[in-house]
Every structure is written in structure tokens, then in C-alpha cells.
Computed example of a mutant assay.
Amino acid sequence: MSNSSGASSGTSNVQQRRRVVGVPKTCWCGASIVALISKSAANPYRSYYRCGYAASLKLIDDNHNFKWVDEALLDEIERLAVRMAVLEQTVSQITTESMDHQKIVFERMQMKLEKEIFERVV
């Protein structure tokens, strides 16, 4: 592990190692995230997101952000699917409430018209 990771001595590893859901925007250290391509034998040409600071210093086994692009995009898709389900439920609820309201308004209008017709006939 490199000693020049840029972490403050007061920050615990638990806070630094928190899992980033989706595509990381910035690292915990404040540096921007860069997209790179792996040159390792285990993951050749696999894209990943990395802390720009750690990437520039070529740090290894540090606490700065690292995430494979495919995993980040799957996280984003799962998160969007959950949001979409919540939105569908909300729209369904609003539609049901709107239909109920329209039904009540229609019934009131119908009663009013029937009353007017009855008054004219009698």
C-alpha cells in the first residue's frame, strides 16, 4: 500500500472504502474520476473508472475509487429500474385518484342534468 494516497490521517478506512453505487462522479479525496482501460493479463482491455489522483500517481491497493465500467453501468440500470417502478406506481395511483375524481364529477353533473330535465318536464 502506498503512503502517498493523499488521505488525511483523521479519515478512517471504513469511510474511504464505502461502496459507490453506479458510476462514480468524484473520489472521496475530491479528485475527479477518469475512465481507463486495463492492461493486466487478468482483465485485458476491460474499462474501469479510477480516481484521477490515484491514477496519475499509479497507486496500487489504495483506498481511492476504482470500479469496473460494466459493473457501474449494471448498478445504474438496476437503480433506474427501481426508480421506474416507483414512478409507475405513482402514476398508477394518480391515475386511479384522477379517475375516481372524474367519476364523482360526472355523477354530480348527471344528477344535476336529471334534476333540470325533471323540473322542465313537471
Rank of each mutant, 00 (worst) to 15 (best):
C27G: 02
N65E: 10
C51D: 11
M84D: 06
G22M: 11
T26S: 08
L36N: 13
Y48Q: 03
V20R: 09
L57D: 07
D75W: 11
Y48P: 01
T95A: 09
E78W: 11
V20F: 09
R50V: 00
I77G: 05
C29Q: 08
V34K: 15
N63I: 01
S38H: 13
A35M: 15
V82W: 07
N65C: 06
S40R: 15
V82M: 08
H64E: 04
I33N: 12
L59A: 06
K67F: 03
R19V: 12
G30A: 06
A85Q: 07
V34I: 14
L57E: 11
E116G: 00
V86Q: 09
I104D: 08
I33V: 15
S40Y: 14
R79G: 10
W28A: 04
F66P: 00
A54T: 08
E116I: 01
Y53P: 01
S56D: 15
R50N: 02
D100I: 04
T95C: 07
M111T: 02
S40D: 14
T95L: 10
C29M: 06
S92L: 04
E97K: 11
E114Y: 05
N63S: 06
G22R: 10
L113W: 01
A54Y: 05
Y48R: 03
K112P: 01
L74Q: 14
P44W: 11
A42D: 15
S56A: 14
S40Q: 14
L36I: 09
I33G: 07
L87W: 04
P24A: 06
C51T: 03
V105R: 10
R46K: 08
L74W: 08
P24V: 05
I77K: 15
T95V: 05
L87P: 00
E78F: 12
K103T: 05
D75Y: 12
E107G: 00
Y49R: 05
L59C: 11
I94F: 07
Y53C: 04
E76C: 13
G22L: 10
M99E: 12
Q89H: 03
T96M: 08
S38L: 14
V20S: 07
D75F: 11
Y53Q: 05
